[in-house]
Design a protein around this nucleic acid. Structure first.
Length: 256
DNA sequence: ATGGTTGCTTAGCAA
């Protein structure tokens, strides 16, 4: 079973990449982020043509997350559901067969010290609280998405250039470790060992040529599922193609 | 190197 997460940076402007990639790689489950579309404008017909079912939480202009699956897909929750007044579409909790799959788009945080950075740190605490409240480390749960966190300097090609940016601060890395302490495994890193793979290259730095990348898109899995992961990787060629998203798809393979 | 590029929406914001 192949699970993939990909921040597409606008699904409507990425259909010409998404559809052939789906056809070529045939993943079982796909988590998408940054749809940048409200549900009424979502390209349902084009996705239906692929044979995938889709569930999504949309929003005009910003954010938006989806889950695609070849088999039956049931929605568990469309937000963190903690009573906080937060219109941002960043969380979709689904059931696919005997696996619970969540597509997540963690806030970027903009600049350290900004309101957006404070929102990011609070949001990560709310995500942890959701797990405590609604999930158990004993179930088969996989959370794929853009976490906007490079967990370690190993996940940054040029750590000095990115030090203390919102993707790398001690505070966001502490929030990441808290997710691990709850019981989630970094299933991609578990497969990579010390190998350095990246999932995002900023448009602005023309950084792809220097491989100025970071690993900020992840699969976090509970132990029953993490134990079944047999392989992981990044479809970097998708980032190197025509009119790419700034993120590449990140996948894990699960035995069964 | 406080620039650079892309997408959505139309000059400014977010990433």
């Amino acid at each position: 079973m192949r699970l993939v997460t990909w921040n597409v940076n606008s699904i409507r402007s990425r259909l010409d990449q998404l559809l052939p990639w789906l056809d070529a790689t045939q993943p079982d489950v796909v988590c998408l982020q940054e749809l940048k579309v409200q549900e009424s404008e979502f390209p349902y017909a084009e996705i239906a043509m692929t044979g995938y079912q889709v569930q999504l939480v949309g929003q005009k202009t910003y954010n938006g997350v989806a889950v695609l699956a070849r088999q039956h897909l049931a929605v568990v929750a469309t937000s963190l559901g903690d009573g906080v007044d937060d219109p941002q579409a960043r969380w979709l909790d689904c059931r696919v067969g005997d696996v619970r799959v969540i597509s997540v788009y963690v806030p970027n945080g903009s600049e350290v010290g900004s309101d957006k950075y404070a929102y990011k740190l609070k949001w990560l605490q709310r995500m942890h609280a959701y797990l405590v409240r609604n999930c158990t480390p004993g179930e088969k749960l996989a959370i794929g998405g853009d976490y906007n966190i490079a967990p370690d300097d190993l996940d940054v090609r040029y750590p000095a250039a990115w030090r203390d940016t919102v993707l790398c601060t001690p505070a966001v890395r502490a929030a990441w470790r808290q997710l691990g302490q709850w019981g989630l495994r970094d299933s991609v890193r578990d497969q990579l060992g010390e190998q350095r793979l990246f999932s995002w290259w900023d448009y602005r730095n023309v950084g792809l040529q220097r491989n100025d990348g970071l690993r900020i898109d992840h699969w976090l899995c509970t132990p029953p599922l993490a134990a079944q992961v047999t392989a992981a990787g990044v479809d970097k060629y998708v980032r190197e193609g025509e009119k790419p998203s700034d993120h590449a798809p990140v996948w894990i393979e699960i035995a069964n």
